[in-house]
């Protein structure tokens, strides 16, 4: 269990278990609190359940048992319509941006607004989307390009603009720097940092195995192992940790970097 009090947690996970085949548990009795208003980085070896955890937080996977509370609401006690309405408070940057490939960059950024802000005029929607693309760092000349015509970094920027379109309270990043070169990795890390600064009070959750980014960005770190939380705390707590697996992960991660 983390050191964070329940009432200050944006996301609270209690005894979460998930098995896809009924035998092996990917998440095995996980307890975790993700604090409000901070950047939390979830790290761990491959196959420790990071992405499955993220999908539980998003309500995309139903847990075998346990509770997932986001902003004080138990996701699986809501009806589908309530869950859809609640999800407006969440923004996600997927690993490969998951842009709609038949829409231009601008149309992608407009999409959540068109769906949920029917009170806005088309001009206002475009204005907001252009602003989000601008603060995400996409050059105006790329606004009318399809995702296939954009580079990996540009796609991430469009994905971020789309995730921020509805000014979400919780922003989640799924392996945002995987497969990017060091320059782009730094750019994405800066983007996450700037986005968090620009949205005071918002909670950011970054799932990553990039240790440099984790220590540079994370105000709160969580390390997973075998479907459980191995350690949760500040970067300082991690540096001082005497848990052998944490030490090994840090040693290997920084050596690799």
């Amino acid at each position: 269990m983390s050191d964070v009090e329940l009432n200050s947690a944006a996301i609270a996970i209690r005894n979460l278990r998930k098995s896809f085949d009924g035998k092996d548990f990917v998440l095995d009795g996980m307890n975790l609190d993700i604090p409000k208003g901070k950047i939390t980085v979830v790290i761990g070896y491959s196959g420790t359940g990071k992405s499955v955890l993220l999908k539980h937080i998003l309500g995309l996977i139903r847990p075998t048992s346990g509770v997932v509370e986001v902003l004080g609401k138990d996701l699986w006690s809501m009806s589908q319509d309530e869950l859809n309405f609640f999800r407006r408070k969440l923004g996600v940057l997927f690993q490969y941006a998951a842009l709609f490939d038949d829409m231009t960059a601008l149309e992608n950024a407009c999409f959540p607004l068109r769906e949920h802000r029917r009170d806005l005029s088309p001009e206002e929607i475009i204005e907001i989307a252009m602003h989000k693309l601008k603060i995400s760092g996409l050059d105006e000349k790329h606004y009318h390009k399809l995702p296939a015509e954009l580079s990996g970094g540009m796609r991430k920027r469009v994905g971020l603009a789309r995730a921020l379109a509805l000014d979400p309270d919780v922003i989640l990043y799924d392996e945002p720097t995987t497969g990017l070169d060091p320059i782009l990795t730094e750019m994405v890390d800066n983007l996450i940092h700037e986005t968090h600064q620009r949205h005071p009070g918002s909670t950011s959750v970054v799932v990553s195995h990039d240790l440099f980014a984790a220590f540079a960005l994370g105000e709160h770190l969580v390390m997973l192992d075998k479907g459980k939380v191995l350690l949760a705390g500040t970067p300082e707590d991690f540096r001082n940790s005497e848990v052998p697996l944490v030490q090994k992960f840090l040693l290997k991660g920084f050596k690799k970097g």
Partner: peptide, 12 residues
């Protein structure tokens, strides 16, 4: 390519 997940996460 997670586009359907993206739709669902957007509350659609």
């Amino acid at each position: 390519s997670e586009q359907i997940d993206a739709l669902e996460v957007m509350g659609v």
